[in-house]
Design a binder for these strands. Structure first.
Lengths: 267, 267
DNA sequence: CGGATACTTGAAAGACTTCAACGATCGTGG
DNA sequence: CCACGATCGTTGAAGTCTTTCAAGTATCCG
């Protein structure tokens, strides 16, 4: 790990076996499940910074899991206005919603160079059929994404610019920290001011002004793509951050038993 | 069905077997699947208008499907500000995100008198295990909810008050119409101005003013809990409504085959 | 060095909120 | 039946948050 103020770990934005790591948050995988996941992990994909991974309205037959790097998902209005709906980091799913329609409903773009794990949508179905526990785990993840999005809605609807940014920084810190990617309190944060504006529903100019207020009150420090949180509690208070919505927990024991039974029955 | 300007159907807000109807949008259920769903449908629950169905932070061991009526999901900030994240109508899931934590992350309230179908969270796991197709269908639904929420984010971040309301009305019409609950273009819309404000990230006063502009330009007509859309195309244009994000489609044939195979293997 | 992009600042305008007041409606109790 | 209070709906004016426009400095890169 990293010390506060240190610069980078050996692999600052990457994480091995992101899918396994993510699912392991909810249930401890057995060997057959791990094998299945490994089997899917075959196709790895790389995109350069700013590359389009999926386009709104275009056919989309794959779902991705980020192995390293950051991505953004966005929608556009007809006159060019853009809203970034989320920043995705290692372990996150991409294009998860396209499994409904085989058509992407968002523009997904690589914010940094990224490495992705590629899964055919149909393959997802097979996996769900063979290993119901994994299907349920995916349901779990979808629910978590949903919860995070709901909080974003809350920010956009009812938080002021200062609160929105403070909240985003705390949330980002918590998410990166869970992956071991927040070295101390100084983390890689490769988001431009324009992307920040499009995510927060503000203009870049107002982002600059608000960021300045945040740094001048000693809550954070920014230099280039590095974000340092100087006063986490202060930032939480400023952003009215309540961690409840983001905390993961294990699948209830009873569900887990039922799922295990079903898996065994198939062998 | 209803004629334009007519008042009510025999069951203006209800729908039979809401879960089946919802899932049938994605796949045609076989008899064993229908039986399983019927088995779950046993516990039916009623709540009166304004009753709390779930509370943010409280333990939550059930997921619900709305049989009739409207509900809202909301988050609160520490100082009382409220953001409604969505309005739920018949067929919609409630507390879906609580399957992650067994703790509700939102306040769910009955907007009208409602009838719900109650499912234990653990039961969901069992069903997923026994009928992978249903698990995947639920994944589908979760993805659709996600897509709708992303659009809400877009509204709050990048649409003006007038556009937001126009968009909401079109979206609501489309959703109700898919259930056969939008009689012509005049539908039951039991949302108070205050709820509208909390959903759109605005104040009630501004809702009144904006609603007035919408009615004066001849796009809609409101009287009490009835909403009539006078100019659907105009409203779509005003709200920059792009239906892509909300359209359902069937599960791809290949996935379906894989799932069926798995189901059979278990018998 | 030139030119692009990132970042900053100021002033005016716009969208929306806040405060305050008022009439209309509606259910309720006397 | 009428009076009453409560909520709903409306309007006006001032204030706040954020945007727009416009200009300017700093930094980086070729």
């Amino acid at each position: 790990m990293d010390t506060v103020g240190g610069h980078a770990t050996s692999s600052p934005m990457g994480v091995d076996r992101p899918l396994e790591r993510k699912l392991a948050q909810y249930l401890d995988l057995d060997t057959s499940e791990r094998a299945l996941l490994d089997g899917m992990s075959g196709s790895e994909l790389r995109f350069a910074r700013a590359a389009a991974i999926a386009s709104d309205g275009a056919e989309q037959n794959h779902v991705y899991v980020i192995k390293s790097g950051w991505c953004s998902c966005a929608r556009h209005l007809s006159d060019g206005r853009r809203q970034i709906t989320r920043f995705a980091i290692p372990g996150d799913f991409l294009c998860f919603d396209s499994i409904v329609t085989s058509v992407s409903t968002q523009d997904v773009v690589a914010i940094t160079d990224v490495t992705l794990l590629q899964l055919r949508i149909e393959k997802l179905g097979e996996v769900a059929a063979k290993q119901p526990r994994l299907a349920v785990a995916m349901l779990w993840m979808a629910a978590q994404d949903d919860s995070a999005l709901a909080e974003r809605v809350t920010s956009l609807g009812r938080r002021f610019a200062l609160e929105r940014l403070a909240h985003l920084f705390v949330e980002t810190y918590v998410r990166l920290d869970a992956l071991g990617l927040a070295g101390g309190r100084r983390m890689h944060f490769p988001i431009t001011k324009e992307q920040l504006a499009d995510a927060m529903g503000l203009t870049t100019i107002h982002i600059y002004r608000t960021l300045r207020r945040l740094t001048e009150s000693g809550l954070i420090r920014l230099d280039g793509p590095w974000l340092e949180i100087l006063d986490l509690d202060g930032l939480k208070e400023q952003g009215k951050f309540d961690p409840l919505y983001i905390e993961a927990s294990e699948i209830p024991a009873a569900t887990n038993r039922a799922l295990r039974g079903a898996s065994l029955a198939m062998e």
